[in-house]
Design a protein around this nucleic acid. Structure first.
Lengths: 201, 201
DNA sequence: CACGGCATGATACGGGTGTACCAGGAGGTC
DNA sequence: GACCTCCTGGTACACCCGTATCATGCCGTG
């Protein structure tokens, strides 16, 4: 039964068990033993494929990032072709909002990692998360394009507007996870602000 | 040395030790023993004044809420008398932003509690945190007042605008804590959006 | 066919966790 | 002065943690 197994498969199986626990019970419940049980393997196996727990956490975080990236890419392609700047901005922002099970899962898991990074900033540097800045730049670019075509008031500052939208979506997500607002209510707030931004001034 | 000591004093001493640890090392490092050492008392004392750890966590969270409330109140009184709606909105929002040591401490500690609440929603219900909704209502009220005096375009939806501002500030705070942005940069983004909102349309 | 390395299992170790138990000293009350 | 309640210290218990160790099976290669 022991044919040279595919390491990548095993690693994925275990890392996704970790992510599942982080989503449902939080990272503090994701002990090595719990991950092993969730993945249906022995504790030793988890140790074997990830020498240390930090390695497992980092690997899982990377996979989570890939999942979010894939989700955004999917939403972007669904924005039509060729996509208008407005469709792109809407797709990117609402793909982050926890409105459906997948995005709820991703957002919740990211939140679980968030406090971990706060108490140990060195962790994220070993992994490199350049995403947020890139996203902000992308949004700013789309806003500038919309300004050229007259969809957005040219008086707006693209960088500031992009940063405001992105942080707003981030905050909206937090409030949804904290059960202070439903996902639909958050989406309504986002679309309201997008409508306001894109109305011809 | 054992004169009937003031329970409230001791409880505050211990709870603030917990908050200090939560701020600097995260809540996961705030064990009963660590709190005892930080407060300079024995483990038994912590147990004596807070029967269980959950009790200690809840009590400390309540005190943290009081501290934030006091901070906001202070900023509001500094907004001048009588304060303009714009000054009030600015005071409330920027008092939440982690720009000085006190607000950084409060925000960081709240963030430490955030994931705790995510993995155990029942926790916050024993404590009752009606703050966010109240704040949103307060902001909406100020926005309406500013609309009546012509400072804000009357076409804006007060509730939506208030929710957008509050969640944006929340997200800005997260990005500052995550070292993605400095506190000053976050404040600049906030004031930019306030300037835009309050320019006569 | 033998051998060496990959893959897996069971278990042990040292340490940290929250909580419970037992003991005793100080102060006010009868 | 006796007593009782408040306050504090030390320590033990049972459990969970991440990691390390030892052993054993299977496989492909020589």
């Amino acid at each position: 039964m022991n044919v040279r197994v595919d390491h990548e498969d095993r690693r994925r199986q275990i890392a996704e068990a970790l992510l599942r626990i982080a989503d449902t019970q939080g990272l503090q419940s994701a002990s090595m033993r719990a991950v092993a049980a969730e993945a249906g393997v022995s504790l030793r196996l988890v140790q074997y494929y990830f020498e240390t727990k930090e390695g497992l956490l980092l690997d899982a975080l990377e996979r989570l990032g890939t999942q979010l990236q894939a989700r955004m890419a999917r939403w972007i392609t669904e924005a039509g072709s060729p996509p208008t700047p407005r469709a792109l901005v809407t797709a990117v922002l609402s793909s982050i909002l926890p409105t459906d099970p997948e995005s709820r899962r991703i957002t919740r898991t990211y939140a679980a990692y968030y406090t971990l990074v706060l108490s140990d900033p060195a962790l994220v540097e070993k992994h490199g998360t350049p995403q947020p800045d890139l996203l902000e730049g992308f949004l700013a670019k789309q806003i500038r394009a919309a300004q050229r075509s007259g969809e957005i008031d040219s008086g707006k500052d693209p960088e500031m507007t992009a940063a405001g939208l992105l942080t707003m979506v981030n905050g909206l997500g937090s409030s949804v996870l904290g059960r202070q607002r439903t996902g639909d209510a958050a989406l309504a707030i986002l679309t309201h602000h997008l409508d306001e931004l894109f109305r011809t001034a």
